[in-house]
Design a protein around this nucleic acid. Structure first.
Lengths: 231, 231, 231, 231
DNA sequence: TATGAATGAGGGTTCATTCAT
DNA sequence: CATGAATGAACCCTCATTCAT
């Protein structure tokens, strides 16, 4: 499609552009200073527009920040939703999610990590609620996987799923916040592997006994008999 | 015998009493509204004194909040330091710490939980620093125990201690914050036991062969499912 | 043609106009009450705007006052810089400066005199510094002239220039402050002439002797021979 | 008289002592920080008493400061009143007063100089009034002498006495304030001599013809320079 | 639509002074 | 008498938000 045609809807396009400019500027400023310490004046300046224009497109500072957070979660949630299904096995998925989480929140200098970790618990209740909601979708790919794994006995089923989520994401948040406050960036790969391993140990059914292994041996033998070529 | 007409907040109190009154009032208000949304006027009113009196005893709002937090951490840290040494075995200590943590932060209606969880990540850097420092002492009884246990091979030594701390306290914070935001108080006993059990599993030294097998099993199972779909 | 209903302080003014309005109002209020006793609320009221508007245009009370003082010194310094060079002879320049100083500071009811005399010595160090700096420029036309006159032997050179400045401006300040505190306005013309005469006596070289006059007579006679028409 | 007897009026003595302690402490603090920036708390602390005690002996901060200033002026005025009469001749008295003034205000580190110079013009009208009054007595020894000298034709009588006072004390104040703000202590002896000499020149009766000639010379010289440029 | 301009609604802090003990 | 304790009354400043142009 030719570029020139896109000029047929300049109004709308302009409007959308403006919104994007604002969101982008707002993300930058909110990331750097946090919600409370960011002023609408800073955002307007960063976006190169007047302060009033911010309020033309967003009802207020809070709503703008909410949108920023929603958009960001959209991005990283989409990524997970796109990638996780292609992985096979609970362990692989867990490993991927852990690594992706750390990479996303540590590797980029976006500061969004500090924003969501901080505002997720901040005094602004609406913000905290939005973050809580966004987290639900973000954690779904892994949680769904874990739920299924529990149902199939691949991981221990004697723990509420909710607690597993606390274990996984709580640990990671603690790691991240520690990194943020101490300003020491840990080796992401090592940390991801270690964290995965730790969590994995916790997830394992208690009865991973020799008996179970024995049963498993039979399964494998039987299976192998049916499989010849490299899939 | 004191004056027959006793007031809860006498108009003229001894310095120490007034300080306690103020700290107590401040703890109540800060707990309920968080640091930022609390005004010095609210604190003064809650303490039954004029706003200026607050500043007679504390240099400012921040310092008052810091003292509130320090005092609270003092209390719960002392408790741990008193009780933990009497327990024998890593598991017993872990179990106690987890349970005490949940009890302290969930059972009382003080709201201090929300305050420290929230302000520990909030925009006021000085507060966050104080909380970080207090946490160090608070987590020491368990962390010392875990360090020793690592040295003696009672728990896995292939993980940095720091990561174990993230696992333990991160999980708990997540549980707590979840409880705060959803306003659903979980069964403390059950949750404490389950959490202890989960963490304990993660801490156990790996029986390498079993673990490897276990993970191998997961991979193979997953592979089989795809190789011979719905046999 | 502008709107038929003109206000002295239109609710929406151009930035420059508002700044002028504020500076003008501030000059009035600061002049009357001095820096410390002036409140930002008073200035806002005098300018017919809200208190917040004051802070839209000036970083704070101090900066506003500084601007008021700078502007005022700009005016009177420019005047001197414009007029003094057209005058010939040290005496004429001294006479003009003294008269202009008294006229400026006594004749107008601006009260700026009291402000600069007072704040020039007040507790606010930044203000005092600004006034000191402004005075340097203000006194330059005369001081440069005196310096040159010293070099050419027209006035006594055995005194530090600095002391001559103290003599000239110290005397005048004392006269002015006396007028302010006693609320008696002296006859400006008379006072200016007398003060000039007093100072001039002090500036004269000690050796204005007959010998020098004798030499001078020759000079004049010689000169007159070359000059015919009325210059 | 034996010391023990003085103990028969301990109450009164104690009271007087306390007042002296307070005045002494107040002088120290006011001198250092100026009136406005001094708090009653500072004074109380410096005196080693409680803040309330200050108000037991003085109606308020202002009155205390007034007393401090009065006492100080008493001291230096008494000194002058004691010494000046012993001197003979106008010049000797002028010389002494100038020197004594500079010595008193520059040599001691009391800071009273800055206090009276500053508060003499400050926004607190009552203080300024007190200082004005004190100055009258302080300047009297010299002013009386000058008045008499005028009557006797020893110094020029064509100037109001008031103006001579402005000349003398204005010059000195300017010198002092300059010293205070630039923090450069001038050589007191040299400055005193030079200032005396300058002022003395101004005070001398005009030898009318010489003076007129002198001024005429200045005018002619200037004119000649323009009439026959660069001959 | 975009904005320059203006502001309402607080917030934290200071300090001279009062008063019951 | 001395004071520990308490406070009333300001004051400067911030900022999200509104509105006329």
């Amino acid at each position: 499609m030719p570029t020139s045609l896109q000029r047929t809807t300049p109004r709308r396009a302009k409007s959308q552009e403006r919104i994007q400019t604002l969101l982008s500027a707002a993300r930058r400023v909110f990331s750097e200073h946090g919600y409370q310490r960011t002023t609408t004046a800073q955002i307007a300046q960063a976006a190169g527009v007047s302060e009033a224009t911010v309020f033309t497109y967003f009802p207020g500072k809070r709503e703008l920040c909410i949108q920023v957070i929603k958009d960001w979660y959209d991005e990283i949630s989409s990524e997970l939703e796109r990638d996780v299904p292609h992985l096979h096995g609970v362990h692989a998925k867990l490993s991927h999610v852990v690594r992706a989480h750390l990479v996303t929140l540590l590797a980029d200098g976006s500061g969004m990590c500090a924003l969501v970790l901080s505002e997720g618990r901040a005094a602004e209740p609406e913000l905290a609620q939005v973050i809580t909601d966004c987290k639900r979708r973000y954690t779904a790919p892994l949680m769904d996987c874990l739920a299924e794994a529990q149902a199939q006995g691949q991981i221990r089923a004697d723990m509420p799923l909710r607690l597993l989520r606390d274990l996984v994401y709580g640990s990671m948040e603690h790691v991240l916040w520690d990194a943020i406050t101490t300003m020491k960036r840990p080796r992401i790969d090592t940390t991801a592997e270690q964290l995965t391993e730790l969590i994995w140990s916790a997830l394992m059914p208690k009865d991973t006994s020799l008996a179970a292994l024995s049963r498993f041996k039979d399964e494998v033998s039987e299976a192998l008999r049916h499989v010849q070529p490299k899939t």
